[in-house]
Simulated scan of single mutants.
Amino acid sequence: MDEKISDTVATSQTRSQRSRKIRAILAGGLVLGVGAAITLAAWNDSEFAQGTFSAGTFNLVGSTDGTTYTEHATAGAAATLPFTVNPTELSPGDVVYAPFAVQLAAATTDDAVVTISNEATTGVVTNLTYTLIQPTTFGCTSATTGTELVAAGTAVSSVPAATTFSLTKGATAAVAGAPVFLCFKVTAGALIAQGQSGTATWEFAAVSQ
């Protein structure tokens, strides 16, 4: 073979090999370049959420005059019902009347269901029955009518099961809820004993809703 031709072939082969190496290097560079691009494009973002938890306020208060409401939180601090006829001089057939009212105090955060129960009796309360009425206004007389919560003829020492009513909180934290008015009518039975004396205490237990 001619030396010039041989040199030309050799030169061509060398250039071809170099070209393949360059393409291989470039290809490797392209692969690395793509890999680097993926790493740079890995965006990071976060969201956080938290909650703050505070207990509300719940307070039931009662009134014997429909105006001044205060707490009577225990049986020992029970409000004394203002019976319109002296309940210490009962005769058979006498009926005495007493109003009461309850409401949710200002700043109370929940409505309530109130369950009535007989907390305790002391002394002798036999032959005494009562009815408990929920009128629309404060007051309690023989003419008072309304929703009957406890049926007439119920022994003073008892309350029927599931005797309840609802209370609503105030429209704003600054005002008390709407009051519920109550009327106790107690009747002395025909067999009431002379000189007997006793005390009945009712509980109004409010549960937030």
Rank of each mutant, 00 (worst) to 15 (best):
G35Y: 13
L90D: 08
S19M: 14
T172I: 04
A27D: 13
A36C: 13
A161E: 15
D2Q: 06
V95G: 05
Q17F: 12
T172F: 01
L104I: 09
T131N: 05
A77M: 10
V186G: 10
G170E: 02
S157E: 09
T84A: 02
A188D: 07
V95T: 06
A155H: 07
L191D: 15
V150N: 01
T137A: 05
T39Y: 14
A49S: 15
A143Y: 00
G51Q: 14
G153Q: 04
V150E: 00
I22G: 02
G93I: 03
K169F: 08
C140I: 00
K4R: 12
I133T: 07
I116Q: 04
A42K: 15
A107L: 13
T74R: 05
S12Q: 10
N44T: 14
G51M: 13
T154S: 05
F53P: 00
R18G: 03
V102H: 03
Q13H: 09
R18L: 08
M1E: 15
A143Q: 02
V114N: 04
I38P: 05
A106L: 09
I38K: 08
T11G: 10
L149Q: 03
T57H: 12
A205S: 11
Q134R: 08
I25F: 12
N118R: 12
L30E: 12
A188F: 01
T145Y: 00
G62P: 01
E3A: 09
G66Y: 01
G198C: 11
V156T: 11
A120Y: 06
V34E: 10
N59D: 14
T11M: 08
T172Y: 03
A206P: 07
D111N: 14
F53E: 02
G28I: 14
N127H: 12
K4L: 10
T129V: 03
T141L: 02
R15T: 15
V159H: 02
Q194A: 11
T136W: 03
V175S: 08
L30M: 15
A205P: 04
A55Q: 06
G35A: 11
T88I: 10
N44F: 07
L90R: 01
T121D: 09
V95N: 06
V61L: 09
A176W: 05
T52C: 07
L81Q: 02
T136I: 05
T129H: 06
T84E: 03
A98L: 01
A75K: 09
A206M: 08
T39I: 12
L132Y: 00
A161D: 15
T172H: 03
S166N: 15
Q17D: 12
A155V: 06
Q50H: 11
K4C: 08
V34Y: 14
N44Y: 10
I25P: 10
L60Q: 11
S208M: 06
T144P: 08
F204I: 09
K4D: 11
S46R: 14
A162Y: 14
L167H: 08
Y130H: 08
F184N: 01
R15C: 11
A193W: 03
V125L: 06
G56E: 02
